[in-house]
Design a protein around this nucleic acid. Structure first.
Lengths: 334, 334
DNA sequence: TTGAAAGCGGTACCAC
DNA sequence: GTGGTACCGCTTTCAA
């Protein structure tokens, strides 16, 4: 069922049918109506691929998550990634593009045949071959974190240093005297920035801060590290906990409870998390969100600008974090 | 940068370059090497859209979630959907197809231009216009639940009746005398099947079962219903709880705890959930999984068969559920 | 107002 | 072995 078939049936040329259906050209009302009616009656659907070839773009944006490539840890557990994927799909569609999921373990050839106009790479590795490949192909790439030393591409950045300062200030304001930070052991830029911010803050305040870095990603290893921190019990260990790795807030609460801590009385708690569960727990948990919806919006917007307006110079956008203060980090009722 | 450019540069025809790059045709080793070297040197990338037009397919499968269309409740909270999406993307890619995310609130024209070969519709509505539209366009559709009275399409089905029986048997075996089931208030086939199974099981056993149906989707309404059930406290309300709506296991545990129930001593608990958190809670929660990975596998496999082998008669596949028994539903240690 | 023809960028048939 | 050419299905220019 092609345009030419409809044309034959209607006794018109395919040019005319095309114009009639697309609302272009200068056609008499009669002809336009007749063409449309015939196409509709025959159940005609234009071939999308042919239109795209003609148009010169596919309006398709790839989406790949690179963290934990080849690791057993399933990133789908983490709300950050699913939030980001869905928000990206939404924003992309608002701009007339659709999002194509690229599973992280697929070899390059698998996606070489996809007509992608651009691609989002979440948590790229250093010198990520996927990124380099698309850059080399002249396809715009946006990442959710700036990678030092990369020549091209676009990025969206989170100001972790400011976030760390904000959380530490908040905890200090609530009376914390000994704050523990749980972070991932990585040499990524944002980890280093967070560490520098903590060291700097610590130097300016008369409040103890300690950092625990967790090697292995995943709930189990993080919860274990938190358990070790809290094992001494109330009054002995830290009196405030800031979990920067994304761990499920209810599970953190449970570990605290298991070791006899009452939140927030004995232990103030802030979790970096995108998990909606945080507001349903008892007590509700204060969360630091990197706002994946804003990241998605900024990232897709960058790509769309490049695609539609042909901008080419690499550049980045900074997105603010958001501290949602709930009972778990408040000594005095709000 | 097109094939013809490479051809000119190499002093060959575009046919030859194409054959050289694709490993087809009968070319001398020298020519093939020269063609490849030239293409590589020039950084040539074939235009995916053009290849697809020629090939007659795009190897793209759409993925749409229809439950909660136009509702404030964000389906991305539910692990079932994200698991299904990711598993589908994986399986699709294994079969040489990529998955395109279609946000549920987009109007039809938005995706009409996507060169989709097939589409997965998760939780379709009755007479879902999206499904009807693709069916009318002759594009294969697979749904994760059979819809009564639909003419075409393919579906993957879960045997909820068997699952309900299995869970009730398990709870009875652990000494439950008064089992409460929390379900969604829907007239979908699977809800009705679950209800029938419960009624039938109840008639054959001397154990009380009660059903609570929750109108509004979302954590809040379900947790409220569970709270109402458990409010009488230990010894008064049901001594076993089977939550068939997908609610986060840690939150259910918390509600039980709040009302003074100890799990599993006072209250046996089984949750239908795909949430990996269930095994990390204290106690770990017994879950009934509908196995989204198997659903994805079966669904994509159906579509790929249709696409590759041109099968057309509608048919379905049944996928088993999996009861993961953990401490929350065991009176005696395992 | 309508339609013929030239592409979009490849692939594949068939003649040389 | 190699290359001319038709064609995938649609849009667009331009001539009639």
């Amino acid at each position: 069922m092609r345009l030419i078939d409809v044309a034959r049936e209607a006794g018109l040329s395919k040019t005319t049918i095309s114009a009639a259906l697309n609302g272009t050209g200068r056609l008499s009302d009669d002809v336009r109506a007749h063409a449309r009616e015939t196409a509709f009656r025959m159940g005609y659907r234009p071939n999308a691929t042919a239109r795209l070839l003609r148009a010169g773009h596919a309006r398709l944006i790839g989406f790949a998550v690179r963290e934990y490539v080849d690791k057993p840890w399933a990133y789908t557990e983490l709300p950050y990634f699913t939030r980001l994927a869905n928000a990206s799909a939404d924003v992309a569609l608002e701009h007339g593009h659709a999002l194509v999921l690229l599973p992280n373990h697929a070899p390059r050839e698998e996606w070489a045949d996809l007509p992608l106009d651009a691609i989002c790479v979440v948590d790229p590795e250093v010198d990520d071959p996927l990124v380099e490949d698309f850059l080399a192909a002249g396809i715009p790439v946006v990442t959710d974190r700036r990678v030092e030393g990369r020549a091209g591409g676009y990025w969206v950045e989170t100001d972790y240093a400011a976030a760390v300062r904000e959380v530490l200030d908040h905890l200090a304001g609530q009376g914390a005297r000994d704050i523990a930070l749980v972070m991932a052991a990585s040499d990524a830029l944002y980890t280093r920035n967070a560490l520098l911010a903590q060291a700097d803050w610590s130097a300016r305040h008369d409040i103890r801060t300690r950092v625990v870095q967790v090697d292995t990603p995943g709930y189990a290893s993080n919860l274990e590290a938190i358990g070790d921190l809290l094992a001494p019990g109330p009054g002995e260990g830290p009196d405030a906990l800031f979990v920067l790795t994304e761990v499920s807030p209810p599970l953190v609460l449970e570990v605290a409870r298991r070791h006899g801590h009452r939140v927030p009385d004995d232990l103030l708690l802030v979790c970096a998390s995108e998990d909606g569960l945080a507001e349903h727990t008892a007590p509700p948990v204060t969360t630091l969100s990197v706002q994946p919806n804003l990241i998605a919006d900024a990232g897709i917007r960058l790509l769309v600008e490049v695609l539609d307006q042909g901008l080419t110079d690499p550049r980045g956008v900074e997105v603010p974090t958001r501290l949602e203060i709930r009972k778990s980090s408040q000594r005095a009722p709000a």
